[in-house]
């Protein structure tokens, strides 16, 4: 196969906004491209997105393939799959990264099946292995709840496709001097491109500090059960100008919205400080904050596994420790 040494991303937009994860994987794409001695490109699909194309260039894209049509404003699985697959088959890049959003996880498998290549899901680390006769992308994936890391490669088929969750890679710095080429693509759509059709997107972007963008995150777990909610943690969170997150049981109890759950099925976050309260420390949860700076844990059970993955541990009843912390912080 005559693959070009390029690392591509699919840049997801919703309502004319680029998803953070798209910039994060673009940063990674630039690193990987440098290693294999090639450039980067982004595929951008939607309507009237030239400003976003310029943004992608500022964040490191050497080329942006732009598909623009009012019928592509929303994610349309058939049309997006075909447009991307056709372009990949023509250009044959080495690597294609996609953000593992709910929409990315709908699109990526269809594209991979259409062009018959391998797709690695939910990678937490990407490296180029140069030990063989050609550089190979090694994608590390957390398995079985995150306790185990498995390396997955796609040796023969191109592109090597990988999805990456938001928050796993770092957003690169913006460089308005970076130059890149905007390549407008001809869009011809037919009936088959809309066998299923998205007719409406309803989004309620949550207000207030969010766990994936705050420097401080306070997490409440099922240990707050006796108190019946995470209310006792809110004052602490506000004092630290942080965001409040939770574990799976906290979501199930209705204490936090879905966008505030941390873990393999929730968000991967890397705040400077994470304070985790009344959480046992299950792998499914702790896999979500591998990249946190300092981790402080409060749990009444001295044997709770959370103490194995913290920097500072307080064994005690959260209902005593948290008010004491609030008091001490106010006195600072």
């Amino acid at each position: 196969m005559n693959a070009i040494h390029e690392v591509w991303i699919w840049a997801e937009q919703r309502d004319g906004r680029l998803m953070d994860v798209s910039l994060e994987i673009l940063g990674k794409a630039s690193e990987l491209a440098e290693e294999i001695g090639g450039g980067t490109a982004a595929i951008l699909i939607g309507d009237e997105l030239s400003p976003l194309a310029r943004e992608l260039i500022a964040y490191g894209a050497d080329k942006v393939y732009l598909f623009s049509d009012p019928r592509l404003t929303y994610y349309q699985s058939d049309a997006y799959t075909r447009l991307i697959s056709d372009l990949l088959e023509k250009q044959q890049p080495e690597i294609l990264l996609l953000g593992g959003t709910t929409i990315g996880m709908d699109l990526a498998p269809s594209v991979a099946a259409r062009i018959k290549t391998g797709l690695t899901a939910h990678s937490c680390k990407l490296e180029i292995d140069k030990s063989g006769d050609k550089p190979l992308l090694m994608a590390a994936v957390p398995g079985w709840g995150g306790g185990m890391i498995v390396n997955i490669a796609c040796p023969e088929h191109r592109p090597q496709m990988v999805t990456v969750q938001q928050g796993v890679m770092e957003k690169p710095p913006r460089d308005d001097h970076h130059s890149g080429e905007l390549i407008p693509m001809e869009v011809k759509l037919n009936e088959r491109d809309f066998r299923v059709k998205c007719i409406e997107m309803v989004e309620t972007i949550p207000e207030g500090p969010q766990i994936d963008t705050s420097d401080v995150v306070v997490v409440g777990g099922y240990g707050m059960k006796c108190q019946g909610s995470l209310l006792p943690l809110e004052e602490l969170t506000d004092l630290l100008h942080g965001a409040l997150g939770g574990t799976r049981p906290a979501l199930d109890e209705g204490w936090i919205p879905e966008c505030s759950m941390i873990g393999v099925n929730g968000k991967a976050i890397g705040p400077k400080l994470l304070i985790t309260i009344g959480t046992s420390g299950a792998n499914h949860y702790t896999a979500g904050f591998v990249k946190a700076g300092t981790v402080m844990a409060i749990n009444s059970d001295p044997d709770a596994p959370i103490f194995d993955v913290c920097d500072i541990g307080i064994v005690g009843d959260a209902l005593e420790v948290v008010p004491a912390m609030v008091k001490a912080l106010k006195a600072l």
């Binding site: 306790g147 185990m148 890391i149 997955i152 194995d308």
Partner: peptide, 25 residues
């Protein structure tokens, strides 16, 4: 199967594990 599973290892997190003692305050 286009994908191949290579090496695997246990996820190890390097943390200080400084467990405090004393009264709550």
């Amino acid at each position: 199967s286009p994908t191949r599973v290579g090496k695997s290892y246990e996820q190890k997190l390097e943390r200080e594990r400084m467990i405090l003692t004393g009264s709550v305050d």
